[in-house]
Amino acid sequence: MLEKLLKSGDEYAAASHWSDFALVKLCLGTLGFLAGVLFANRIKVKTILLAVITAAVSGTILIRRFLPILKKNL
C-alpha cells in the first residue's frame, strides 16, 4: 500500500508544474502559520480566518489534482 502511495506521489510530482509546487508551499506555510498563531498570546480572528481559508482553498486544489492519479494507481 505504501509503495502504491509513493508511486502516486512520484507520478504527481512528475506531472506537476511550478504552480503546483507553489500551492504546496502556500498550503504548508499557512498551516505552519496557523500552528504558530495558536500558541500566541493574542489571537486575531481575522488573521486565523484568512489563514484557514487559504489553507482550505490551496489544499482542495491540490487534492483534486492528486486524487485521479491516486485512484489510477490503487
Rank of each mutant, 00 (worst) to 15 (best):
T47L: 14
E3W: 03
M1T: 09
A14L: 02
N41F: 12
L23H: 06
P68M: 00
F21H: 13
K25M: 15
L5S: 12
N73L: 11
S19E: 10
E3R: 08
A35L: 12
K72L: 13
W18M: 15
F33D: 14
T30A: 07
I69S: 08
L2K: 14
K25G: 14
K46A: 15
L23S: 06
V24F: 06
V24I: 13
S16Y: 03
N41H: 11
A15R: 09
G36R: 04
V37I: 12
N73F: 03
L28I: 01
A35M: 13
C27V: 08
F66Q: 07
F66H: 10
L50H: 06
Y12K: 09
K72D: 13
A40T: 08
W18C: 11
K25T: 14
T30K: 04
K72T: 12
A13H: 08
I43H: 03
R65C: 02
R64M: 04
N41W: 03
L23E: 05
N73T: 12
N41C: 08
G29T: 04
F66K: 03
I63V: 15
L38C: 14
V24Q: 05
G29W: 02
L26P: 05
L2A: 13
D10W: 08
R65T: 09
V52D: 04
K25S: 12
E3L: 12
G29V: 03
G29N: 01
A51V: 02
N73A: 07
L70K: 01
L6D: 13
K7G: 02
S58C: 02
L38Y: 05
K44E: 15
A56V: 11
A13N: 06
S58W: 01
S8F: 00
L67G: 10
F33R: 07
G36N: 09
N41D: 14
I43T: 09
L67N: 06
E3Y: 01
L5H: 08
F33P: 01
V37L: 08
K44S: 15
V57H: 00
F33N: 08
D20S: 04
K7S: 13
V57R: 00
R65I: 03
V52N: 00
S19A: 09
A13I: 05
D20Q: 04
A15I: 10
G29E: 02
E3G: 10
L70F: 10
V52K: 05
K46G: 12
G29A: 07
S16C: 12
K71H: 09
D10M: 10
V37K: 05
H17W: 10
L50D: 12
K4G: 04
A13T: 06
I63L: 11
A40Y: 12
G59D: 10
A14K: 08
F66G: 01
I69T: 14
A56H: 00
G29S: 07
N73Q: 06
K72E: 15
F39Y: 15
N41P: 12
